[in-house]
Design a protein around this nucleic acid. Structure first.
Lengths: 115, 115
DNA sequence: CCGTATCCTAGAAGATACTG
DNA sequence: CAGTATCTTCTAGGATACGG
């Protein structure tokens, strides 16, 4: 039996991966092909991208469409359930932005790339 | 120069540690001694507890009071700044609770201990 | 173009023993 | 009671090469 002390533990398991929130964020604006995601996240390796996508898929957050074409074409999108996590992504993003702004104003050598 | 793609990355650095959200959650209801926290989180080792507290302290989320008594007495509390993270903790908790409830209703052998 | 298979590494987390 | 010092374990993430 899997046990959690707090709901937040489940949230972190699902969205706490290094790139997951970023991936979901990007997919929120519309479905994307694997290669688009690779381009949008230059620092991620293909293996890790696929891995994180599989986990998000397993957890019901993103869906996958295989067009069975040659050459292959696959698209990922945020599921209806995944959209319920939107509020979390938003608030974590805004608190983090504010946190970075604050630290920057205190002299830390730090930068936020998103606009 | 430290760079972030999204604000959420900063949030996860600060609150994404395995026990941090739980610790902050517990401290939200009032300041606690080290030994109380150890008792409230039976599965954490002392080393890791202190470590997570130090990081939360460094990040301005919790504060530490040393009473300089013998035997020693130290208390931890959520700082004013830490309280701004309250909304995040709350929403991550409630989404996670709902996620667990959902998975449980789908037959997963899973349990949420918090009430 | 998309994905898998290996191997590898850095850092988080844990166990244990010890001090003021 | 609170904290440090080691040593060990574990695993997410990364590098690389290959296959449908």
């Amino acid at each position: 039996m899997k046990q959690y002390n707090l709901g937040i533990e489940a949230t972190l398991e699902i969205l706490g991966g290094k790139w997951k929130a970023l991936i979901v964020c990007l997919l929120m604006s519309g479905k994307k092909r694997t290669s688009e995601l690779e381009r949008l996240i230059p620092d991620i390796s293909q293996k890790v991208l696929i891995q994180q996508l599989r986990e998000l898929e397993r957890d019901g957050i993103v869906g996958r469409i295989n067009y069975h074409q040659m050459p292959p074409k696959v698209e990922y999108y945020v599921t209806e359930y995944g959209i319920t996590a939107n509020k979390i992504i938003d608030i974590m993003c805004s608190w983090g932005r504010e946190n970075i702004r604050l630290r920057k104003s205190q002299g830390e050598d730090i930068e936020l790339l998103e606009k």
